[in-house]
Write a protein that binds this DNA or RNA. Structure first.
Length: 568
DNA sequence: GCCGTTTTCGGCCCGACTGTTTTCAGTCG
């Protein structure tokens, strides 16, 4: 999409202008523009054609002109001008911790640093440390920054973040009183990857002691900062965790502040300022007087806004929606009354049918679909139709043993190489629920096969529709998701939002687009163990990031209203 | 460069920590 190209160019302009020490508000304008274009729901060419470009907040006459120029001649004068005299290799060093635009400019001007090699030379021969405003300590920090940069990893997938978060909380709990500690940041917003973790610890006193306990945790590789109220460390593998000690009476303000996103927070502070107020992590202030701080609701209310769910705080229109009273009532965990994709030991699950049904009922679900793999999934001991019929006895036994939950006896069937489904035709009408999935041939005409599978009246849903594994696999090769979404809408086939933290597939962006096109979303855990039923939380977070309401999700319906495609 | 329920000019978010400094610049989130 051309949106991404333009966004990248604007970001580069911002970096270059900042490096040159230009007006920081102009720099910020390009950054906001980059973000605004990247977040557009439609192609920028459409906006240009309809002359709606300057309606986008953050895009004025200047940036609109840049975009126009880029679309018509494939070049952007503003970008070319900004990049004059700015070595590309130099800008890449921005990723090194502790190295911002000002120091970079200084090193470039005084020491002729143009890339990583020349930076390392300046660090080694002592010329860098001798610069005014620098010293041996600073040089040492930068050396470590370089070392980290060289083995720097990507943002951590949320699946890894969950494990790290649990570990940190457990270990810290042994050393300090962290009763009401809570993670904020992108983790709380439910992003699919986290750059770091932000832990808030409410405490009236002894901030330094808590920070000290934190920085001494096992596994801490490096302490980046340790003060009265803030600690910042790197764990093995370079994973950063920040801790803030906050007074309990301003926990709400701190939660707001540290949950972000940065862009959302900036907007809040702008709104505050226009009302003669000030927002910081300690509260909302009118002069010297604190007017709100205890809860997030109070903080938003002080700005004349309703509380905005953390997952929506990305400055992607939620503030405007909140202001105008049209913030959607996004789905919550308690709204989910069905899990329609669950495995058992009959295929590659670990628990029995009865155990899974009991666990689902215990979680308050009213419907559960047992959907073991089909025969083609040999690696998973997939079920033939004959074995599925055998399984029926256990399903019936579970139905009797566990009242209050409707048990659908379904199957997760493979989509075959020719777009058929891995189940004899005479069996397809006998099942209660059929999910179709691509589990092989990821590079083989996936779009065409999925579309054909959805034309089958017995296929109720397509599981993990893009096949991605966060941080590991981008997904099915060459897939045209738009075509899949269109076919799903046209045939009434559900698309899954798979809640497994390593999948979260559909992504929030794709789920939102699918829902806008009229596709019903089915939100499932794809559980292979009882414990995995808990993953629902991450699916719900993703759904909230997608602004999905109860109505958009099949799983919010009561048992009688969950019907097969051909019965609807 | 963007923007306007104070404004078409003059603003533009806020604080902690660090390392270098005697009062602050740079970086980060």
């Amino acid at each position: 999409m051309v949106n991404q190209e333009i966004s990248t160019l604007f970001e580069a302009v911002a970096d270059a202008l900042e490096f040159k020490g230009e007006n920081r508000f102009r720099v910020n304008a390009y950054r906001r523009g980059a973000r605004a274009v990247a977040d557009l729901a439609e192609d920028v060419t459409v906006l240009v054609a309809e002359k709606r470009l300057t309606d986008v907040p953050g895009i004025g006459k200047g940036l609109a002109g840049d975009i126009d120029e880029y679309l018509s001649r494939g070049k952007m004068t503003a970008h070319e001008k900004a990049m004059e005299g700015v070595p590309r290799t130099l800008m890449e060093l921005r990723a090194i911790g502790g190295l911002g635009p000002r120091r970079l400019a200084l090193f470039h001007e005084k020491l002729g640093v143009t890339d990583l090699a020349s930076l390392e030379r300046a660090l080694a021969d002592g010329t860098l440390a001798a610069l005014p405003g620098l010293g041996d300590r600073m040089a040492g920090n930068l050396r470590e920054g370089v070392a980290l940069y060289l083995r720097s990893r990507e943002r951590m997938p949320v699946a890894e973040a969950v494990a790290l978060a649990r570990g940190v909380l457990a270990a810290l709990g042994e050393k300090a009183d962290v009763g009401k500690a809570a993670f904020a940041g992108s983790f709380r917003r439910g992003r699919e990857t986290c750059g770091d973790l932000d832990l808030l610890v409410p405490a009236r006193r002894n901030g330094a002691a808590i920070v000290e306990a934190f920085t001494a945790l096992p596994g801490v590789e490096r302490v980046l900062a340790a003060g009265e109220t803030k600690g910042s460390v790197l764990f093995e593998g370079g994973r950063q965790v920040d801790l803030r000690v906050v007074a309990p009476e301003c926990l709400g303000a701190a939660l707001c502040y540290f949950t972000g996103s940065k862009e959302h927070n900036v907007r809040l502070r702008e709104i505050a300022k226009k009302r003669g107020l000030k927002v910081n992590e300690y509260g909302v202030w009118k002069g010297e007087k604190r007017v709100a701080a205890r809860t997030e609701e109070e903080v938003y209310a002080a700005l004349e806004l309703p509380w905005i769910p953390p997952e929506m705080r990305e400055n992607r229109g939620e503030i405007e929606a909140a202001r105008e009273g049209r913030l959607p009532e996004v789905v919550g965990t308690r709204d989910i009354r069905a899990d329609l994709h669950v495995h058992t030991a009959w295929s590659d699950g670990k628990a029995s049918v009865l155990e899974m049904v009991k666990a689902a009922a215990a979680r308050g679900l009213k419907t559960v679909a047992i959907t073991d793999h089909s025969a083609a999934a040999t690696y998973a001991h997939g079920l033939t139709y004959a074995r599925w019929k055998e399984q029926k006895k256990e399903i019936d036994a579970a139905r009797k043993a566990v009242p209050g939950i409707r048990v659908l006896h379904g199957m997760e069937v493979d989509i075959t190489a020719d777009g058929g489904i891995d189940l004899p035709i005479e069996a397809q009408g006998k099942l209660d629920w059929i999910i179709a999935s691509v589990h092989s041939g990821f590079r083989n005409r996936v779009t065409e096969r999925m579309v054909k599978a959805m034309e089958n009246p017995y296929v109720d849903a397509v599981a993990h529709p893009t096949g991605r594994l966060i941080g590991k696999r981008v997904g099915y090769e060459g897939q045209d998701l738009e075509a899949v979404i269109e076919k799903a809408a046209a045939t009434g086939t559900c698309l899954e939002l798979n809640a497994a933290p390593e999948r979260l597939d559909l992504s929030a962006e794709n789920a939102r687009r699918a829902a806008e096109k009229g596709v019903t979303i089915t939100l499932n855990t794809d559980s292979h163990t009882v414990a995995m039923l808990e993953n629902l939380e991450w699916g719900v977070k993703t759904a909230r990031r997608a602004w999905l309401t109860r109505a958009a999700i099949l799983n919010t319906r009561p048992p009688t209203r969950i019907k097969r495609k051909r019965d609807r």
